[in-house]
Computed example of a mutant assay.
Amino acid sequence: MGKVILITGASTGLGVSLAVQAARAGHKVYASMRNLDKRAGLDAAVTQAGVSVACLQLDVQDDASVAAAVAQIIATEGRIDVLINNAGAGYVRSTEQAEMADVQWVLDVNFTGVVRCTKAALPHMRAARCGHVINIGSVGGLVGQPFNEIYCAAKFAVEGYTEALASYVTPHFGINFTVVEPGGIQTEFANSVLKQVNETGGMLEDEYLPILQSYIGGSQARGDTAYQTADEVAEVVLRCMEAETPPIRARTSDWAEDLCRIKTQADPDGRKLQAKVMQDFLGL
């Protein structure tokens, strides 16, 4: 039986790949985005794949928008089996250079948006005693990286949020939680980083400039070694969704595994730590 899946941030990149692959696997997909005027990429991919996907408006920064989208799906389907919190945005800036308005935006899109959507879907999953919330995190949620401290802080928050929910909601209500940690997605990183830097004031002529140039150059040089296609990452997400016992966390490539190994080697999928927390705090 196909699942009812809500995907956020489905206008481009990974969101499009997730929608297409989930629909191709026989699931009922609701692909959402903040601005429906930007649905052309999704429509083209869906048409090319020969699948059917429902598209709806959902702005992860707007409580009312999130509530309305979830209510629409519940009214139509009666349930949401899987929520994939995919919407997110990168931010490359040193703390000294970052404008506080930008800091709040990064945290709101990447972390608070995850909370908003989960909060809206969770009561319906709890009533059904089943469901799966999959948060698209990053290796930046496990490993702090140069000029990414604000973005990494948001993704670290997603890690803690996912772990905490899994420690008590999963054993009591049968709802699974997973954070998927890509190392990067091809065709998006360099261009999006440079665009974002330019949109927030460009490369500032200060002592950080040569370090930033080194960082961007190194990221571009890693190329295919570090970055995957959106389709490859989507395949990992779907495997997590279809697993009988889903992982708490999952990297999506050998490069990502290698980068995070020092932190993850004792408990790669997070289930040992989940069991310890459940035992120590809840006696389960």
Rank of each mutant, 00 (worst) to 15 (best):
Gly201Thr: 03
Ile211Asp: 15
Glu149Arg: 02
Ser192Asp: 13
Tyr161Gln: 03
Met203Val: 14
Leu194Asp: 14
Thr170Tyr: 01
Gly201Trp: 06
Val197Ala: 07
Glu207Phe: 13
Val179Asn: 11
Gly218Lys: 04
Leu165Asp: 08
Glu149Pro: 01
Phe147Cys: 10
Gln213Trp: 03
Pro171Ala: 07
Val158Gly: 13
Ala153Arg: 02
Val169Cys: 07
Pro182Tyr: 04
Thr200Phe: 08
Tyr208Ser: 15
Arg222Glu: 10
Glu163Gln: 15
Leu209Val: 03
Phe177Gly: 00
Thr170Gln: 15
Ala164Glu: 13
Gln220Cys: 09
Leu194Met: 14
Asn148Pro: 01
Tyr168Pro: 02
Ile185Leu: 12
Val158Cys: 12
Ala221Met: 12
Ala166Asp: 15
Gly223Gln: 07
Ile185Ala: 01
Val169Phe: 13
Gly202Thr: 05
Val180Ala: 01
Ala157Phe: 09
Glu163Lys: 10
Phe147Arg: 05
Pro210Cys: 05
Gly183Ala: 13
Ile211Leu: 15
Gln213Gly: 06
Leu204Gln: 15
Ser167Phe: 00
Ala190Arg: 07
Gly202Ala: 05
Glu207Gln: 12
Asn176Gly: 04
Thr225Ile: 12
Pro182Val: 10
Lys155Thr: 11
Ala154His: 05
Gln196Trp: 04
Gly217Ala: 08
Gly160Lys: 12
Thr200Asp: 04
Lys195Trp: 08
Glu207Lys: 12
Leu212Ile: 11
Tyr208Glu: 14
Val158Ile: 12
Leu204Ala: 08
Phe147Asp: 09
Tyr208Met: 15
Tyr208Phe: 14
Ile216Trp: 06
Leu165Thr: 11
Ser214Asn: 07
Leu212Cys: 10
Tyr168Asn: 09
Gly223Phe: 05
Ala221Pro: 06
Asp206Met: 04
His172Arg: 15
Leu165Ala: 10
Ser219Phe: 13
Ala166Pro: 01
Val158Tyr: 14
Tyr168Val: 08
Ala153Pro: 06
Gln186Asn: 04
Met203Leu: 14
Phe147Pro: 02
Leu204Asp: 00
Thr178Val: 07
Gln213Ile: 05
Gln186Ile: 01
Thr200Glu: 06
Tyr151Trp: 02
Cys152Tyr: 06
Gly218Leu: 06
Leu209Asp: 01
Gly184Trp: 02
Gly202Phe: 05
Gln196Ala: 08
Glu181Tyr: 00
Val193Ala: 12
Gln213Lys: 14
Tyr215Gly: 02
Phe177Pro: 00
Gly160Pro: 08
His172Gly: 01
Glu207Val: 12
Gly223Leu: 03
Val179Ala: 08
Gln196Gly: 09
Pro210Glu: 07
Gly218Ile: 02
Gln220Ala: 13
Glu207Ala: 15
Ile211Gln: 12
Ile175Trp: 07
Glu149Ala: 10
Lys195Cys: 01
Leu209Gly: 00
Lys155Val: 08
Gly184Arg: 02
Gly174Met: 04
Thr170Asp: 09
Leu165Ile: 03
Ile185Asp: 00
Tyr151His: 01
Asn148Val: 02
Thr225Arg: 15
Phe147His: 09
Tyr161Met: 09
Gly218Val: 03
Tyr151Gly: 00
Met203His: 06
Gly201Met: 06
Glu163Asp: 14
Thr200Trp: 08
Glu149Ser: 15
Arg222Pro: 00
His172Thr: 12
Leu194Val: 10
Asn191Val: 09
Leu204Met: 09
Gly160Val: 09
Ile216Thr: 06
Ser167Asp: 14
Val179Met: 13
Val158Asn: 11
Ser214Ala: 14
Met203Ala: 04
Ile150Asn: 04
Ser219Ile: 13
